[in-house]
Nucleic acid binder design. Structure first.
Lengths: 338, 338
DNA sequence: TTGAAAGCGCTAACAC
DNA sequence: GTGTTAGCGCTTTCAA
């Protein structure tokens, strides 16, 4: 293992004290111009880099923030992360990204790992399986700054950013109705998730507003959140095997939208027969066949806002007690099946 | 910010010395069972967690490895990362993921950031734009363990894992020939990349073996690697505007494959008219329209192998001088356009 | 303007 | 079996 130059090394070489070198390097006002010059030059020469670990130990700050998402392969999250990074880097923070694969278990270990590694704060979008939030609550009460994005929870009072899931779902459902569809099924995500219920409400409200009969048998929950294709295909099969089968499906989750498209393709369904609309931030959703209308979330922007909130918490000199929840608009993209 | 319990706190409370507490906590053999019990219990009670920053400072080990990839949104990389994590977590290592967006500039800052944060080693897949490897060379010579995967470079002698890009490209091109196509264009990635040339060779060899005339005007490089859609669409347009226009395209890059599909869709090309085959690890490639045959890389496995190599380097007691380059098979998936 | 010394949390010689 | 001390790299009083 290699050993980078330290302040001590420089001090020794230059016959100065470590403290002088330290001050010179940080351009301290007490140090003479001449000394600074000498120190800087030598530091340059030996390629001195301050050791952030030592700094962290001293300052109890790491200038890194932890990100916990269910799945990197989900475009929504990789877009959100890009947004987070864009701001974080600018402000001199490093990001540590971890994924949970929607496992509550991995979520807990990842979060603890991050907290122990002393990130200055945490950005998290909850896993589908999680119902016990105590590990987060404890950390939060201990003073770890946390901001939730997209998949938020009520149990912890802090900054949050989400999409207007209600309206997104409403608009998508409405678009199906306006296409003349009256028998609209719902493929939904794990019921623990905040977003699942909001989207369900939007769907229901649209049905009600347009006097479309609501049928409980048209609702299917895919509690594995589209991570398990079989689950989605089974749900689609069941829907299409109903005596009075739906003529449209609204899918309230990113990954499940993709799985539903795949299921319809496998089952050889004509998109004209079954119209679909769903949440999706996939960057190829416009190329899918069967095609679908889709609700897009402002993922990048959500990431940016989340990290700005977190930095506010981290950098605040006094404990923050006023928390805001931002709700971002969604965009509906209509696609006519060919 | 909150202040977690330290060894000192425990020592003070229990009227023991810090070293005794330290040893007791790590179940040191010299410590009496009784003392251990007392210490353990008290530690439990105050929720003692060892401070990894202090440990890192002491041990010059962080048990974290840095990952540098061009783009998380690229399925190939998110799959590789999943592979990396699967092994890393198991062995008690933490991963720090960063993306460069194929910018040489961000690559350099990310790598330096990671090296400074004292990761124990680095897994890297090079950005398309990079041609100056000196920053990596320096770190490597200074003793930082580095393993390259997928997009490797010759300039640094260490462990590497890639796919059999030559054969993948050969097989894909061959499949187009076997479909009766004789005018096969090539959409290619940035020429600096190792994989670009290997795939080019595979394409050329297939043409040669089947006595298909090679035409330089059928080759187009998209040096932005599919990050810039316009570039790809222009390339496709140019190809299709040639007097003797191609009847097939082989695309030698993941992201460009997607962009090419999009271009063909925009330009309203019938997949029967232009057959396409390309590298892609997208998890929805089978749902794309126009459809394409695709070469899939063993991304997850590649990640696993890469991290295993890295751990070998990290945990080796002696400097390693024998390096291996593993080459993984690719899988060709044939799709008939409808 | 510069230096000496203490301390962040932990471990490991070396005592006793 | 337990305590003392020094040190990882850095900053920061305090003293000179």
């Amino acid at each position: 293992m290699y050993k980078p130059a330290t302040i001590k090394d420089i001090a020794l070489a230059l016959k100065l004290s470590p403290s002088t070198v330290s001050r010179a390097l940080r351009d301290g006002y007490e140090i003479s111009v001449e000394t600074k010059r000498i120190v800087m030059e030598y530091a340059q020469k030996v390629n001195y880099k301050s050791n952030p670990i030592a700094l962290s130990l001293k300052n109890r700050r790491t200038y890194s923030i932890g990100i916990v998402v269910p799945k990197l392969a989900n475009s929504f999250f990789s877009q959100a992360i890009a947004g987070i990074e864009s701001i974080a880097y600018e402000k001199g923070y490093h990001t540590i990204i971890t994924q949970t694969h929607d496992s509550s278990e991995r979520e807990r270990t990842n979060v603890n790992h991050l907290a122990q590694r002393s990130v200055d704060g945490l950005l998290i979008s909850m896993s589908a399986g999680t119902s016990d939030y105590s590990f987060l609550k404890t950390l939060h009460e201990d003073g770890l700054p946390i901001v939730f994005f997209d998949r938020v929870i009520d149990e912890i009072d802090t900054f949050k950013v989400t999409s207007d899931n209600f309206k997104g779902a409403y608009n998508a459902t409405e678009s199906l109705i306006k296409k003349g569809r009256k028998k609209i099924a719902l493929l939904s995500n794990a019921p623990q998730l905040s977003i699942t219920n909001e989207r369900l409400s939007g769907y229901m409200k649209a049905l009600a507003d347009y006097h479309v009969h609501f049928r409980p048998e048209y609702i299917r929950n895919c509690s594995k959140g589209g991570n398990d294709y079989e689950e989605v295909e089974d749900a689609v099969k069941e829907l299409l095997a109903l005596p009075d089968k739906p003529d449209a499906i609204f899918i309230s989750s990113d990954r499940i939208s993709i799985s539903c498209v795949r299921a319809l393709k496998h089952l050889n369904f004509d998109p004209k027969e079954i119209a679909i609309a769903g949440f999706s931030n996939s960057d190829v959703v416009d190329l899918l066949h069967p095609s679908l209308s889709y609700v897009r979330q402002k993922a990048f922007e959500m990431g940016q806002i989340a990290v700005e909130m977190l930095l506010k918490l981290i950098e605040s000199k006094y404990p923050v007690t006023e928390f805001e929840t931002r709700v971002l608009d969604t965009e509906l993209h209509l696609v006519d099946p060919k």
